[in-house]
Design a binder for these strands. Sequence first.
DNA 1: ATAAGGGTTCCAGTGACGGGAAGGTCAAGC
DNA 2: GCTTGACCTTCCCGTCACTGGAACCCTTAT
Lengths: 128, 128
Amino acid sequence: MNIGEVSKNTGLPAKTIRYYEDIGFVTPARGDNGYRSFSEKDQHKLVFLGRARGLGFSIEDCRTLLALYEDQGRASADVKRVAQKNLSEIDRKIADLQAMRGTLSHLVANCAGDGRPDCPILEDLGRS
Amino acid sequence: MNIGEVSKNTGLPAKTIRYYEDIGFVTPARGDNGYRSFSEKDQHKLVFLGRARGLGFSIEDCRTLLALYEDQGRASADVKRVAQKNLSEIDRKIADLQAMRGTLSHLVANCAGDGRPDCPILEDLGRS
DNA sequence: ATAAGGGTTCCAGTGACGGGAAGGTCAAGC
DNA sequence: GCTTGACCTTCCCGTCACTGGAACCCTTAT
């Protein structure tokens, strides 16, 4: 398969697939014309990676997960540890965003949003 | 004031303050030795910027907010619009993260996390 | 005189790609 | 055979908001 078809099948942009080759996630064969020739297994890996990225795993975590995926003798504890770390990270990000959201929504609610210059948002940002 | 003191007072790293000068947020005077010499007003702006960044506003939004802050004839509607856009963006990010969190926490909960290779996390990522 | 602790500029790197240029290849239609 | 258009290739720069580090200058205290 050429990269275009793999892109369509996996939902990953061709640019991303080339990048994933650069960083060693897949190593597709090459045809005589220099085109990448992806196997089913390559495509399957890319689907795996797309899903892992979609769950917020970093590239390095994906590398670990892919290695575990291909290691029949893995311990599920190793997988779980990576996933839990990511989960904690996600929780931290949510908490950060919710703290921002709390302050900001309060300020927005109190701003008249009319033609007058008085604005609690700017007052808060500029308070001494 | 030298950059070190301003850094301490504002909580912003000196590197960040220099960067904020580069992009035109502040234009501190210079002493004979070439050192930056910050006024109270410069420092106040930096505090403002630090708070705005802390609420998730982008650099470009900060630029807009700073201009509005310094414009006595502003309309609070202009400020509110910027803030609401940021709030929407934050909401979108929270929703994305919570979707990840939902899937991931479910998978983590179902993973034994022991020495055996069976792992619902990898199974899900690799499902066909 | 020296050492510590400021300050300065400039360049490169981060994460995970995306945009776009310059060019090679392939299949279809005329 | 020629052209057209869609596809593919590599390469390099840009993103965002900084951060790290090198190489060097200035100030103050000992």
